[in-house]
């Protein structure tokens, strides 16, 4: 039986242009809404798979504003059975703070496996999982796309520079997940009903945060636009091939 803790973050749902808040301390999501990043969704999926295969349970944890309950509920809707919210202003926290708060929860309970997204879609720190593993004295594997648990060992696969890498790590362990290995499932109606009933455990920060070192956010200068539109649809094929001939890449 492997009990899994999956850590998820509420992040702005940007697909296009990003706006900043007036104090330049965070991205302004008022017009785009919030979501859970793809890496986190895949972490939830892997957690649910491992728990199902080993008769374990999945607890989902988020550190952030009270609204992060929305992301916790969506994980509860696909198979997590308990949820913890550490309420805090995310702007005040750095990666070491986030890792420290997760470590508090893990050390009070017996989660054999802790899963996190490899990097957060907004702050992009690439280190919370590693700091967590260090604090808990557990091995960490990063960038994992698929995994399974057999007894006291987690077998994981990741995309490395030389190909598909296999890891085999003793539990308890920390694993950070990258999208691409699994398709996150959609919540069923019964899943959603169950999710509503689960009481979310509320906690507050265990210590004064050290912060992230952020001075301010800025937006990159826009790239100049100068595209010449050749036309619309398949009719442009002739113009395109004329161009390719002119450029000397086809006869």
């Amino acid at each position: 039986m492997t009990d899994v803790l999956v850590c998820v973050k509420r992040v702005p749902d940007f697909s296009g242009e990003v706006l900043l808040t007036e104090d330049a301390q965070s991205a302004d999501a008022r017009f785009v809404g919030y979501t859970m990043s793809n890496h986190d969704q895949c972490a939830v999926e892997l957690g649910v798979q491992v728990a199902a295969a080993t008769d374990g349970q999945v607890t989902v944890l988020s550190i952030g504003t009270a609204d992060s309950v929305e992301q916790l509920r969506s994980a509860l809707g696909v198979g997590a059975t308990a949820a913890v919210l550490v309420e805090a202003d995310p702007v005040a926290l750095g990666p070491a703070d986030v890792a420290h708060e997760i470590a508090q929860v893990v050390s009070e309970r017996d989660y054999g496996l802790v899963l996190l997204g490899n990097d957060a879609a907004d702050s992009g720190d690439f280190q919370v999982g590693i700091r967590l593993g260090h604090e808990l004295s557990r091995p960490v594997v990063t960038g994992v796309q698929t995994l399974s648990v057999d007894g006291d060992t987690v077998s994981a696969r990741a995309d490395g520079p030389d190909g598909r890498e296999k890891y085999s790590v003793p539990l308890p362990a920390v694993v950070t997940v990258m999208e691409g290995g699994v398709e996150p499932r959609y919540p069923t109606i019964t899943g959603r009903m169950k999710a509503k009933k689960v009481e979310v455990e509320n906690r507050s920060l265990s210590r004064e945060p050290v912060g992230s070192g952020r001075v301010k956010l800025t937006l990159p200068p826009p790239t100049p636009t100068n595209a010449e539109v050749l036309g619309e649809g398949p009719e442009t094929a002739k113009v395109v091939v004329d161009l390719l001939q002119k450029l000397g890449v086809t006869r």
Binding site: V18, L20, G124, S212, G213, R214, V215, K216, L217, T218
Partner: peptide
């Protein structure tokens, strides 16, 4: 780079 490169952060 933060927010997938759509924003930049000055960090100390």
């Amino acid at each position: 780079q933060v927010v997938g490169g759509a924003a930049l952060e000055e960090m100390r």
